[in-house]
């Protein structure tokens, strides 16, 4: 497609108002050059590379393992303090989740309904107004009175 496309001449690109287009064209050119240059370096395997997979070589993530340094009953107070802190942090995280008794999803759903309701309500109100207008024309709004000094 780019081959068929007529290219903008250099002198036009040099013009002041063509600045942004010029940048775009230059970027494209750079990309093309790069592909030409490194194209034969790409192996078949690299081209097939999909982004579906993440490689994680450690078991720590897979099995959610703990740190491996533990102490109990005051053998090493420093380590125990750190362990306690970690536990507290975890508790806080869990509590934060529990404290909000309405989840974000519920809230979103609720707001959706609310909006719908207001729409229908508005319609209803409008229809009421119309009816009123038809039946017994509402008392006219009092005219604006110019203040008199």
């Amino acid at each position: 497609m780019s081959a068929n496309k007529t290219k903008l001449s250099k002198s036009i690109l040099e013009m002041k108002f063509m600045k942004r287009t010029k940048e775009k064209v230059e970027k494209q050119q750079f990309q093309e050059e790069g592909e030409e240059y490194f194209g034969n370096e790409l192996t078949e395997r690299m081209k097939k590379d999909s982004e579906r997979f993440i490689i994680e070589p450690s078991y720590i993530f897979c099995e959610k393992l703990i740190d491996g340094r533990v102490s109990f009953q005051g053998m090493n107070p420093e380590i125990e303090r750190l362990m306690e802190e970690e536990q507290k942090n975890e508790c806080v995280k869990v509590k934060e989740k529990e404290e909000t008794d309405i989840s974000d999803e519920q809230m979103a759903q609720n707001w959706k309904n609310y909006r719908k309701m207001t729409k229908t309500e508005r319609k209803y109100e409008r229809s009421l107004e119309n009816q009123n207008n038809n039946d017994e024309s509402l008392p006219k709004k009092p005219k604006f009175l110019k203040p008199q000094y």
Partner: peptide, 8 residues
């Protein structure tokens, strides 16, 4: 279309 994590 789900990202899959491949462990050891």
């Amino acid at each position: 279309k789900e990202t899959i994590i491949l462990g050891p």
